[in-house]
Simulated scan of single mutants.
Amino acid sequence: MPLADHTGTCWFVGLTTLDVVHRAAGRPDRDEKVTASRQDVAAGGPAANAAVTAAALGARAVLVTALGDSPVARAARTDLETHGVEVHDVVAPGQDFPLAVSAVLVDEATGERSVVSADAALAEAPPPRFLGDLPHPDVVLFDGHHPVIAGAAVGHLENRDPRPRVVLDAGRWRPLFAELLPVADVAAVSARFAVPGHEDVTAGAHALGARGVVVTHGDGPVEWSSGDDTGTVPVPAVEARDTLGAGDAFHGALAMALAGGAALPEACATAVEVAGTRVRHVGPRSWLAEVRR
């Protein structure tokens, strides 16, 4: 199936990291070292990776995040801008910020990744002062990190006409999702996502206010629910060589398709195809050439 031909303007609000990715024949045991067969360094984080995906697919991708002016942050910014992302940093120019460096190991045999990262836990990001200067978005994606930034963005969206659609990247529960689910048009969650007080993830997300819910099951079918309509989207079998950022690619493609006016089932089908392309390629950026517009 060809990718849906949709473009639009998407904001991605949340986390940026710098990922140091090693590929090796296996994971080291305790107090053991292994030699990597490949090394990559690229910007990471759910919002940042989703923005890279959307930009490659032809959307105007606007990233609202916390970077600072450290060498680590400059490396992350350079990678993002190289791949077409418009980066808007809430940290004042010239000020440092403890950007997380993620240590990633990808298993050559299975393509599975292991990640150690501080995410956004090292410091509280300041609020953005520039949201009114950004292009009007068709879709805004939140990844559940940087609560101060997210809160400011939610407040800003309440006064926008037309109001953009809100998409959540909800891989695992964070307290911020209790505030974001009530404003979500689409909550994209993993099957392991747990809404406190609810056994069923779809029912729980709807109960907290999400109007649409998408549930991913790894290589199993994607479930979607919107109002009284429900359905599934099959996931084609592919050789998974590298799963790092596959979920982020799914969310970036989902946001891009929704921004262009796609209905939820069509947007899910586009996201499934893009995520499948991601896992067939080794390395955090090599796969973009296959989907770039």
Rank of each mutant, 00 (worst) to 15 (best):
H146L: 15
G209T: 03
E108W: 04
A187I: 04
D229G: 02
E266W: 00
G111V: 02
S70H: 00
A237S: 15
Q39H: 15
G252F: 05
G8D: 10
A76S: 14
L168F: 11
G209E: 04
A50I: 00
A240W: 04
T35C: 07
A123Q: 14
A92D: 13
W224Q: 09
L180M: 07
G94W: 12
L67C: 06
R77H: 07
L288K: 05
L258G: 05
R280C: 13
P128W: 13
T9M: 04
T16K: 11
E32Q: 15
V235S: 10
V274Y: 12
V167K: 11
R280Q: 15
A289F: 00
V87T: 05
L180N: 08
A271W: 06
R74H: 14
L105M: 14
F12Q: 06
S102C: 04
V106S: 10
G132N: 05
G247N: 10
P234Y: 01
T53M: 12
V41Q: 14
W224I: 00
L176G: 04
T232H: 13
V189A: 14
L63E: 07
A253T: 01
R241G: 12
F12N: 08
H146G: 01
P98K: 12
R23I: 08
M1W: 07
L131N: 08
D119V: 07
V34R: 14
F193Q: 03
G84W: 04
D219W: 00
A118T: 12
D40H: 14
A100T: 04
L264W: 05
S286M: 01
A54Q: 05
M256N: 15
V274E: 12
W224A: 01
R241M: 05
H251A: 09
G212F: 06
A36R: 05
A42Q: 08
A55T: 02
A54K: 08
D229F: 00
P135E: 05
D219S: 15
S190K: 05
S37K: 03
W11N: 03
A153I: 10
T35Y: 13
T277K: 08
V274H: 11
V186Q: 06
V235Y: 09
A203T: 14
F142I: 06
V90F: 13
D107L: 12
D200G: 09
G14P: 10
V34T: 11
G111Q: 11
A191Y: 00
A4C: 09
F250M: 11
A51I: 03
G171I: 02
A246R: 08
A92N: 03
G68R: 12
V62A: 04
R285Q: 08
G209M: 01
R38Q: 15
L134Y: 11
G132K: 10
T232G: 04
G212Y: 06
A188P: 00
V195D: 06
A56L: 05
T110H: 10
A237G: 08
R285N: 10
A210G: 08
P135D: 05
G283R: 07
V201C: 02
A54W: 03
